[in-house]
Design a protein around this nucleic acid. Structure first.
Lengths: 207, 207
DNA sequence: CATGTTACTAAACTTTTGTTTAGTATACAA
DNA sequence: TTGTATACTAAACAAAAGTTTAGTAACATG
């Protein structure tokens, strides 16, 4: 056995199917596979495909052209198609490299902050939130919403300024926007003077 | 004209092509499109495809089955396939919603932290780096490397412990690992007692 | 030593699919 | 009014692609 119950030949063909889909955005035909591997008979290729299907690596629709379809769950991992950066549980001494066994999961950023309606990013340009771990240059991810709860970190517009990021500390007759930096002062304004634009749901920093 | 120089019918067909690729991971045949739209003649569909090709929305290979291929640059945006969270330049007062005109670009997290060899994430569980904006629970993204420069924030293993995140403050006869929190003390160790495992290149926090 | 799997060739066959020819009808612009 | 683009039908044709039948050969396994 070669990799994961596949023979070497079967592995090569499965790999070619993937490459073709990747490059040409459609699966290859039996004859295209045959040409690639110098298999003159279509039956030769068809046999490999039957084996791959039987072993659960691909699916096909009988009689349809280009119907080879890799089974995602089985194939991802084998060809490194997973999205995301691996999250390691711990970094132990001794081993020079971080082994795959150490990986707890994959950090799928698209899943973490999906491209969904109402989600925006804003680059922070002040220092008023450093104690909340939001530094100049960071990108804050915020969900656009007109209100928030006390304690939330919000993106708000005060006095026609560019939006600022502050902690919402009070919501009564006066709205209190509290910085996380003793050098800055809490903003206390009438509700009419403050527009809450969104709630911060994440921070991303690249160094 | 309907959308972006396409007729309504052409738009519908282009949309169906996209859906088919999305759902079945291969483009539809002319007859499959015909069936969907109750166009009995293959010529009727072929005419639409010729129009789409002429207008630059798709590409085809003559004589090949299922060779319709949407031209990525033109199509993305029309069907909302872009990856990433929009980055807004500023959040202005007045407008109730964040207009698309405001968008400076798209934050493509996969591009920012690509799934490349040697890139890992580690969840921070101490408070020793709060002043550097790294809090408990944050994910630090680090590039696996055995050395680093003074000033870098590194992931290191000291005394068989689980990896810690510290600032590399000295590299001579003794290695200095400096926390960013006055409550913690700088670690000063022989090089033999410290293993630098990587350099922190990013921080991600979800709130 | 029979049996099954793998890995093919060769040739014929069928179905699917793309292409072409011929024609209808509507709408719009020059 | 003539041309051009759109939006099709109908029918036939040709090429592409999947399927099937009949074998060969190597190799491993019980």
């Amino acid at each position: 056995m070669y990799k994961a119950n596949l023979t070497e030949r079967q592995y090569e063909i499965l790999e070619f199917v993937h490459e073709t889909i990747e490059e040409k955005s459609r699966p290859p035909t039996i004859r295209e596979i045959g040409r690639e591997f110098s298999i003159s008979s279509t039956k030769g290729v068809a046999d490999h495909l039957s084996a791959l299907e039987k072993k659960g690596w691909i699916e096909r629709v009988e009689g349809e052209a280009r119907s080879i379809r890799p089974v995602k769950e089985k194939t991802e991992g084998l060809f490194g198609e997973e999205e995301g950066v691996p999250v390691v549980g711990s970094v132990m001494a001794g081993e020079p490299t971080l082994a795959v066994e150490n990986v707890e999961g994959l950090l799928d950023l698209e899943e973490m902050f999906p491209n969904q309606e109402g989600l925006f990013a804003l680059r922070v340009d002040g220092n008023s939130m450093v104690e909340a771990g939001i530094h100049r240059g960071d990108l804050v991810i915020f969900r656009q919403q007109p209100t928030a709860e006390v304690g939330d970190i919000v993106v708000a517009v005060v006095d026609d300024e560019r939006g600022t990021v502050k902690k919402l500390a009070g919501l009564g007759e006066k709205i209190r926007l509290e910085p996380a930096n003793p050098d800055y002062e809490t903003i206390v304004k009438d509700p009419s003077e403050v527009e809450i634009r969104g709630r911060v749901v994440g921070v991303i920093r690249k160094m």
